[in-house]
Simulated scan of single mutants.
Amino acid sequence: MDTLFELPEPETPEEAVIAHYRLSDDKYGSRAEREAIFDAERAMAAAVEDAGVGEVDGNEFGGGEAVVYAYGADAEALFKVMEPMLRSLPLRPAHVVLRQGSQERETRVDL
């Protein structure tokens, strides 16, 4: 059957892993803290790419907190790959938010 147009494929909702780390001051943390985040982020990006579960999309520093963002089709699969590196960072308190599904259900995991 010929159609006049093709309907777009329904989009799979993008899920997220968002990691929050408290820094040693109320601004951007120490140089060592920033370098630790950057090193962990590079390691996470490589592991996530190798596993084919999404992408690590960057970070944000300010207000005494560092945040690392990652996105993919399955937040739990993404977190499973990232978890060892997320837990290896010594900065505390720290937690991860898993955003799941089209309803953007959020689950908090303390590190």
Rank of each mutant, 00 (worst) to 15 (best):
D26P: 06
S24L: 01
E35S: 11
I37G: 13
Y69T: 04
K80N: 14
A73I: 05
G63E: 13
N59A: 07
D74I: 03
V48C: 07
A94Y: 08
A94R: 10
Y71W: 15
L98Q: 04
A36V: 02
L78E: 15
M82G: 14
A73S: 15
G62V: 01
G58V: 00
V68N: 12
A77L: 11
D26G: 08
Y28K: 06
V81K: 14
R22I: 00
R42S: 11
G58R: 06
V81F: 13
G54N: 06
S24E: 05
A36L: 04
I37C: 09
S88V: 00
D74P: 12
A45C: 04
V53R: 13
H20Q: 02
E65A: 08
A45Y: 05
R87S: 08
P93R: 01
E33K: 03
E49P: 02
P90V: 00
G29T: 01
E65N: 09
H95D: 12
A32P: 10
V53G: 14
A32T: 02
P90A: 03
E33D: 08
E33F: 05
A40Q: 10
E41T: 01
M44Q: 11
P93N: 05
S30C: 04
E49L: 02
G63M: 04
D74F: 11
V97L: 15
G64Q: 10
M44P: 10
V48D: 14
A32K: 08
D74V: 03
R31M: 02
A43E: 11
D39Q: 06
A47R: 11
E35Q: 13
D39T: 00
A45D: 14
A66M: 09
D74N: 15
G63D: 14
A66W: 14
R87P: 10
V48F: 11
V81N: 11
L89I: 09
D25F: 03
R22C: 01
D39M: 01
A40F: 08
A94K: 07
E35T: 02
M44D: 08
E41K: 07
L78Y: 13
G29V: 00
R92M: 04
V56I: 02
V68P: 15
D74Q: 09
S88Y: 07
A45Q: 11
V81R: 14
V53T: 13
F79R: 12
Y28H: 12
V81I: 15
A16L: 04
F61R: 09
E76A: 13
P84R: 10
Y71N: 12
P84V: 00
G54R: 07
H20T: 01
R92K: 09
V68S: 13
V48R: 11
M85L: 10
L23V: 05
D39R: 06
K27P: 00
A16Q: 12
R42G: 11
R22D: 07
A19H: 08
A19D: 09
L91E: 07
K27Y: 06
A51T: 03
L98P: 10
K80L: 06
A47K: 10
V67G: 09
A51S: 11
V48S: 05
E65Y: 12
I37H: 12
D25S: 03
G58I: 00
H20N: 06
H20S: 03
Y21W: 06
S24K: 01
V53I: 04
V56N: 13
A70K: 10
A40L: 02
Y21E: 02
